[in-house]
Amino acid sequence: MSETYDFLFKFLVIGNAGTGKSCLLHQFIEKRFKDDSNHTIGVEFGSKIISVVNKSVKLQIWDTAGQERFRSVTRSYYRGAAGALLVYDITSRETYNALTNWLTDARMLASQNIVIILCGNKKDLDADREVTFLEASRFAQENELMFLETSALTGENVEEAFVQCARKILNKIESGELDPERMGSGIQYGDAALRQLRSPRRAQAESVQECGC
């Protein structure tokens, strides 16, 4: 089976227990809701190729356990992530309150330029909502996060969340803000595109850096 893609991004899915991280991932990959899912122990893994702005990007997604104490285990997987989905449950304020912690962890342990999208999951349970769209989007703005409300049950905005995150990373690469060549960037060139893509972008990136000096 030949898999061709231009880029490979390492993604994380983080957030409190029971917010629906695994369901989001499952919906994204399998396009259906996983009804009888177990909680994640340690780390699970999934991957999918999507196409963003005429480029095919392979997402390598690490789905982490949400429970606090598993962080000591999952933290080792943060390193070198290019993007992250930070998930909370709109029907539980507690999961929302924990976001700051998750954010600090991600920024500290993953790559510095990690692109994070905040996902308010369980949008379908609007009746039980405890966190309003407005306050969450304000939080996102303050912390320079993208923001979407998603539903793993209906599939609303799920693909969108991953695609938006990937697009932002691609933009950053285009603009030279992110250097795929740097170790621990969480980005790799796909085999197919390695040669054609590398040289022009490399030159561009260097020129940007020079300007910054």
Binding site: I41, G42, V43, F45, V73, S76, Y77
Partner: peptide, 13 residues
């Protein structure tokens, strides 16, 4: 690959 990735589930459960 860290071994915890593959075996933490085995051992915890």
């Amino acid at each position: 690959v860290l071994w915890t990735l593959v075996v933490s589930r085995w051992f915890i459960c």
